[in-house]
């Protein structure tokens, strides 16, 4: 059996229906655990005081904002190549959630920046990149909303996602060229395997990251399922009108 079997709408509805309760449970459970742990039971940082606790929101949401865009890119690519409808609908479903994650990352960053850097906003490369990411999400969602034919909208938004991804990478380097920045380096450098964050902070952070991941997954699947049903509904209504 090929992996693409899972993308058949009927099979998709079947396995997501079974897996969703577990994913919801993991998402909400781990998020609540990570955030409660972080908010109530971790110590303050020597330099940052209690504002270090914002990291449990900021890092996971930023992570999922970027991964959400990546998911949209891959799903759009699959739609363009293999024409799986579910793939296009997953890309559509992921966009508003990615936008929410971007907004959370921007908001928590601004609230953290105010006491630490003395300003809500600086035109730092990372902040600027996130603002651009936010604009990408908004444009992508707006394009989906303004085309009523779903297949047409899927094609147009997929093309936009392809070109947009190239420009997202370009923007990232252009922005770095433009301004060096205040933002600290990455907290969890995966490549080097080192950590710039101590275990006391890292474990609740990891729990919270896992929680955000599953929450994102659950929301994307629920939205994609609603899109599949909305499509079926559209077909039925058209059939009724014809009869």
């Amino acid at each position: 059996m090929s992996i693409w079997e899972y993308a058949n709408p009927r099979a998709f509805m079947g396995w997501t229906g079974k897996a969703l309760p577990l994913i919801w449970g993991l998402g909400i459970g781990l998020t609540v655990l990570g955030l409660v742990w972080g908010y109530f039971f971790t110590g303050d940082d020597f330099r940052m005081g209690s504002t270090v606790k914002i990291i449990y929101l900021h890092v996971p949401s930023a992570l999922m904002a970027i991964n959400g865009y990546f998911l949209m890119f891959v799903a759009s690519l699959i739609w363009l190549i293999r024409r799986h409808h579910v793939s296009a609908l997953v890309a559509k479903a992921a966009a508003p959630i990615g936008l929410t994650m971007t907004l959370i990352a921007l908001a928590t960053g601004a609230i953290w920046g105010q006491p630490m850097w003395g300003t809500w906003w600086v035109w730092d490369p990372r902040l600027t990149s996130f603002l651009i990411l936010c604009l990408f999400y908004m444009g992508y969602i707006a394009l989906w909303e303004s085309v009523s034919d779903q297949d047409l909208a899927a094609d147009l938004t997929s093309i936009l996602a392809m070109v947009g991804s190239v420009f997202a990478v370009l923007s990232r380097y252009a922005v770095q060229f433009w301004n060096q920045g205040l933002h600290q380096g990455t907290s969890v450098p995966v490549v080097t395997g080192e950590r710039s964050v101590d275990d006391i902070y890292f474990i609740p952070l990891a729990v919270s990251m896992a929680g955000f991941f599953f929450l994102f997954l659950a929301l994307t699947l629920v939205r994609a399922r609603a899109e599949v049903r909305a499509r079926r509904l559209g077909v039925l209504i058209r059939r009724e009108q014809m009869a």
């Binding site: 908010y39 005081g49 209690s50 606790k53 949401s61 929410t100 928590t108 609230i111």
Partner: peptide, 19 residues
């Protein structure tokens, strides 16, 4: 939470609201 109580709580409140 020390002197940053307002900021930290506000960050959690805003994020949870958006979620």
């Amino acid at each position: 939470l020390g002197k940053y109580a307002v900021e930290v709580t506000a960050a959690y409140a805003v994020s949870l609201l958006l979620l």
